[in-house]
Amino acid sequence: MRGFLVLRVVAKLLMPFMLLFALYVQFHGDFSPGGGFQAGVIFAATVIFYALIFGLPAARQLVPEALVETMVALGVLVYAGVGVAGLLLGGNYLDYFVLAHSPVHGQERGIFWVEVGVAITVSGVMLKIFYMFAGRQRSAEDE
């Protein structure tokens, strides 16, 4: 896609807004539709969009493979870690009431971190699957 100037410029213009929308869906998910899963997918879609326009190596530079693989596991760990934090603070597993001074704040905090975990894992898995498919595509081209 070297020659498509319009595509490249429009992609560069659009990407900040896509990332911003992902963050909005993530952090405004308490008040409006959205949440971790949707935000993770939108983030992954942004990077996939970048990879489609600028090529896979550029995307791999932007979001390295090692980071993606870490994200796949990190999200589940964050989610499970919220549960363990509840245990350590004297509640049940995945009990958010004990995470802050008042139960309602504890709930908000727990939901926030749980959504963060979901978003990290979902975007990591989506990106990893895309990298896997696209990487094979490139090796098929080489042959």
């Binding site: 998910g29 308490d30 949440g35 958010y96 309602v104 908000e108 939901i111 959504e115």
Partner: peptide, 14 residues
């Protein structure tokens, strides 16, 4: 109970 106005999020995460 959760301080989260979006019921879908509250049910999903809590």
């Amino acid at each position: 109970e959760t301080g989260v106005p979006n019921v879908v999020t509250a049910v999903l995460a809590s």
